[in-house]
Design a protein around this nucleic acid. Structure first.
Lengths: 352, 352
DNA sequence: CACTCACGTGGATACGTTTTCAAGCATCTC
DNA sequence: GAGATGCTTGAAAACGTATCCACGTGAGTG
């Protein structure tokens, strides 16, 4: 356990002032001679600038925060990998938090990041605009990924991004939306859901159900739009985010409405639950019920039959979000919508 | 974007010195009167101590680092969730890195953590003892999880933990092992593998293959021991860690040795590959080939037939590792071995 | 030659906290 | 009542860095 060399040591050994060393190492101006000497000495002493001093001086911790609901959900694993890849190539650290989908925990983690002076954050939000107010107020650069905070009753944090995305969705923006500089990187849920519903319709399905979870608001809206009015409300059910509640929702749906012939699962946890519930109830896929799952995860191919999915680029989503949050110096970046793709495997069949 | 109150502001507003404020907030001694006043003022100013100042003063960043090979691997997702849960309850941040199983990236990330003065680290190591030397030398408190660095040729970093675990495995410790204070939290691979092999043997299987990946050294050793000599070396194959190479290894194994009747996959990525490769080659599970997979992941139950697995408590593993690394004040914690459980589902059948 | 200008340089300062140290004060003991 | 003892307190010194500012030196310009 040897103590590390400081900038002062380098300065003394090189016979220059600390300011010069700092300049050389941060790419400032210096004469070629001194630059070379400083670099040589720094290399010889194995000097590594301490992030502690720099952080305090600049009153901000480098890198970025990342808040996801659950790393056990493969999609968020993909998203995290994307963020980490971008951060790594930039040499920046990322401090991670798992919210469990709980706004309270999310608020705690935001507080923790604030305390750490982490001023850049990528989040899959669970709480509403009120939860996010402290972060915005503190001047954090926030980028939402995958979803947005639940729509606030009055103009607030997520409004700008929501306006962005509703415009991109082709919907008219909420009237009271006042921009508040929170961009987002999300998948084109509307197109993804619409394509899936059309595909199922093409197979002859009339009674199509939607199995949703927290944060699937845009997907539900897209589903309603794709199905067209009037929507059979009993066919739109929700879990709370846990695997258990997802299973309960799926099982309840199948039992209460044996007449349904197709299900769109809003996420891979829900898709998993649907498969399990169907099996438990002796419903064969796709013979008795067709299934389309949001998220393409490696194990979708393992099911038998392999699952037809709406693929969204989780890794890219994370990478793009990280890029946005890193490049956002002062200005507000534009929101990004990534394409989805319907990957047809074997979990959908003709309506009988 | 309002500037946050500093300890100085609180001190002035309360009419005391900064030292007193610091003491009150860190639980030091103070008269009840002043304590109350300071707390009141701090609350009123919404004062949150800055981690930056504290970190610099203490020359160490709080929290811990976490290095895993791949968050897309559900098992590491579980492990990370465990770490995060423990860290959250302690109010500590965790900075995450994904190594991709590449020692070079791992070394880079270690360097980054060193620069951040993160002095506690939980890692699923990919590199060898040499990769880990810088961290140890810098005085980091390291706890390995799930696996250990590859056995060094001479005494080095992982030696102590390896000695610990070989002893726990009932094997004689390596002769040259010199303790170097790197504890580990791992599953009881030996018992897990042995149980699986015995189970397969009990079903009549003679030619059992092992499909391994990087870091599965202990599992391979256990497999060799359980199978007994002489081991048919063609039945022990390895992938490099990626899904592609896992698939190639599995496919190659099935094609080169059509006489094998059972496979033990050393991890869930390899199990996934085995299922896909078997399907591609028209091998039916468990009719043509029986399969046991290490790691119990949610989707194991989705396969048909559902996969028989050796479950290891990924979440507990992470939680325990985080506990160890947090409680390790100066002394070296003892390594921990967690139990495994053979969960019998439907992917193994009698040998035909 | 004098004057300006640009540039390389180093001293000093600030960032927000913890911790040491000595001083102040009240209480206790002989 | 004098000395000793214990507790509370605030001033000050770090921690390692980035940056402001002033100084010096050289070249360029009139």
């Amino acid at each position: 356990m040897e103590k590390r060399a400081t900038i002062k040591d380098v300065a003394e050994a090189a016979g220059v002032g600390v300011a010069t060393v700092s300049r050389v190492l941060s790419g400032g101006s210096a004469s070629p001679a001194t630059r070379e000497r400083v670099l040589a000495v720094a290399a010889q002493l194995d000097y590594r600038p301490s992030a502690l001093g720099r952080n305090l001086r600049q009153r901000r911790t480098g890198g970025m925060g990342l808040l996801v609901p659950d790393l056990t959900d493969t999609f968020y694993g993909q998203l995290a990998e994307g963020v980490l890849a971008c951060a790594r190539s930039a040499g920046e650290p990322v401090v991670l938090g798992s919210t469990g989908g709980d706004p309270e925990q999310e608020a705690d983690l935001i507080g923790m990041l604030l305390e750490q002076s982490v001023d850049r954050l990528i989040a899959v939000p669970s709480g509403d605009a009120e939860t996010w107010a402290p972060a915005i107020r503190a001047g954090m650069t926030v980028v939402f990924a995958d979803r947005l905070p639940v729509q606030p009753s009055h103009d607030d944090a997520g409004a700008a991004a929501i306006a962005d995305l509703m415009a991109l969705d082709g919907l008219s923006p909420a009237p009271k939306a006042r921009p508040l500089d929170v961009p987002a990187v999300v998948a084109d849920d509307r197109a993804g859901i619409r394509t899936a519903v059309r595909y199922l319709r093409g197979l002859g399905h009339k009674r199509i159900a939607f199995l949703g979870g927290p944060g699937h608001d845009r997907r539900v809206a897209a589903f309603r739009e794709a199905v067209g009015s009037p929507v059979d409300e009993e066919l739109v059910v929700f879990g709370t985010g846990s695997r258990d509640s997802a299973y309960a929702a799926a099982s309840g749906l199948f039992q209460s409405r044996p007449d349904l012939s197709a299900v769109v699962a809003g996420g891979n946890v829900l898709g998993e639950a649907a498969v399990l519930a169907a099996r438990e109830l002796d419903l064969r896929v796709p013979r008795d019920v067709s299934l389309v799952m949001y998220d393409d995860v490696p194990w979708a191919e393992l099911c038998s039959p392999p699952l037809t999915v709406i693929a969204q680029p989780g890794r890219d989503m994370g990478y793009r979000a990280a890029e946005l949050v890193l490049r956002a110096v002062g200005r507000r970046p534009r929101s990004v919508v990534l394409p989805t793709e319907l990957i047809i495997r074997g979990s959908c069949g003709p309506h009988r």
